[in-house]
Design a protein around this nucleic acid. Structure first.
Lengths: 147, 147
DNA sequence: GGAAAACTCCCCACTTTTCCCCACTTTCCT
DNA sequence: AGGAAAGTGGGGAAAAGTGGGGAGTTTTCC
């Protein structure tokens, strides 16, 4: 499965299209077939999962019990924002209005590789996000990963 | 089996027809033969199962114990509202009055992909539903899916 | 029992959106 | 410096969405 890293800012054209950095495109496995599933991020951004990675997520959700109220709600919340998009001949995807509105994306978008997914941020929203994070990288690593 | 995702609002015409989003139509397996079984949702909406998916549901219900009063009642409640509909040449289905009344659907309908089924909501009813749900997505995911 | 009303199921026609392709500019690499 | 790859912008064909007519069937009501 693809592992994404790096970051770059790209322009969003009048038709709502953004280029996916060539480095990340090249990291895609053939199984992804140049296709991503976009969803609302937990933060104010868009998550883009390559098709093969999304498949795994989806399989997890499909095992939830439909007779459980909370499970039904979770599935709705996740899937209603999910949208499948493919790279066009120029290596771009087009962002659905609903998602770019949610993420506050305007003329430019910041694209960040984050392991099994790509994140698409409004550059300013990302700045704000950084400000809010008070803990330094070292203590964070210790808290999250320290045994 | 088909996996549905995404959401879109469509108009309901004077004849009670709604378009099914092309993305969802394309997700249908040939086995579904462009046919859905509609039934009352657990929430104030209509559930639409593709024919092949409905078959599986039916099998589940048929395995319930007929000697159990509550099981008999559940089966009645589900089946009495079930109605089979097919896509017309323009990719639409027509909503039976009884179901659209139940869901409170008027001029417009919100169509949501939810895994093995499609849900059809009145846009305002869906808004109300969202208001009622207090838990945020992150804690919900943690509770339902475990760490 | 029969006429009127309602509902289905095909059509066809029009509008809007999407997507595919081509062309130009900029950046990167040797 | 020159060529190739990456990024940006826009035009046009095709598909999707919307609305309505009209034949045939069923339901309703007197």
């Amino acid at each position: 499965m693809a592992r994404f890293k790096g970051q770059a800012a790209y322009s969003v054209d009048a038709k709502g299209r953004v280029a996916i950095p060539a480095k990340m495109r090249n990291a895609l496995t053939p199984e992804a077939q140049g296709t991503f599933t976009l969803t609302k991020g937990f933060e104010k951004c868009i998550y883009a999962y390559p098709q093969d990675g999304w498949k795994v997520k989806e399989d997890e959700y499909s095992q939830l019990n439909v007779n459980n109220r909370k499970a039904r709600h979770l599935i709705r919340m996740i899937l209603m924002w999910a949208e499948e998009v493919s790279l066009d001949g120029q290596g771009r995807i087009s962002l659905p209005r609903s998602l770019s509105d949610y993420a506050g994306i305007g003329e430019r978008a910041l694209i960040i590789g984050a392991m099994d997914r790509i994140e698409i941020w409004d550059p300013e929203a990302f700045e704000e996000y950084l400000q809010e994070q008070t803990m330094d990288q070292e203590s964070l690593a210790e808290e999250v990963m320290g045994s």
